[in-house]
């Protein structure tokens, strides 16, 4: 396939069909340009999603003051949640094995907690938590 282009954003937002995901992932495995663009788009997406969700000014809608309703995030939010987990793992890995990545990208990552996740289906549920008994042994 030619370069992925706007499929990258649709992928991050969970808007691709399974067949398109498979095709894109196969392409990403062989195309450094698109893999890099995916990572940068994930940083940008996470930066926007990291903007604080502002409360309504008090008294603007009296009907709304009694109840705080969280903003809904679409299914792409799971990608963000997965990215947060990945970012944490990467942060720990970076402490153990320092590297010299892109400064601008790293700065944004540290500021917004953003990091690309190559698989939108990846979620916190896939994080393996060791059994307490294993740790104590």
């Amino acid at each position: 396939m030619s370069h992925a282009g706007e499929q990258i954003s649709a992928y991050l937002d969970g808007e691709l069909a399974r067949a398109e995901i498979d095709q894109l992932q196969a392409h990403l495995a062989t195309c450094g340009k698109c893999a890099g663009e995916l990572q940068e788009m994930q940083v940008v997406r996470s930066a926007v999603r990291s903007l604080p969700l502002l409360e309504l000014p008090p008294g603007l809608i009296p009907e709304a003051d009694a109840e705080v309703v969280p903003l809904r995030r679409n299914k792409g939010f799971l990608v963000g949640a997965a990215a947060a987990v990945v970012a944490l793992v990467i942060a720990i890995a970076a402490i153990v094995t320092p590297s010299t990545p892109s400064v601008a990208l790293e700065e944004l990552n540290s500021r917004y907690g953003a990091r690309a996740s190559l698989d939108p289906a990846f979620g916190p549920a896939k994080v393996v938590v060791p059994d307490l008994g294993d740790i104590l042994e």
């Binding site: 706007e6 954003s9 997406r45």
Partner: peptide, 16 residues
């Protein structure tokens, strides 16, 4: 889809 991706590309130029 096109607008979101093009918007993010412009944001990338500003932010990264």
């Amino acid at each position: 889809r096109s607008r979101i991706h093009r918007g993010r590309k412009l944001l990338r130029e500003s932010l990264i």
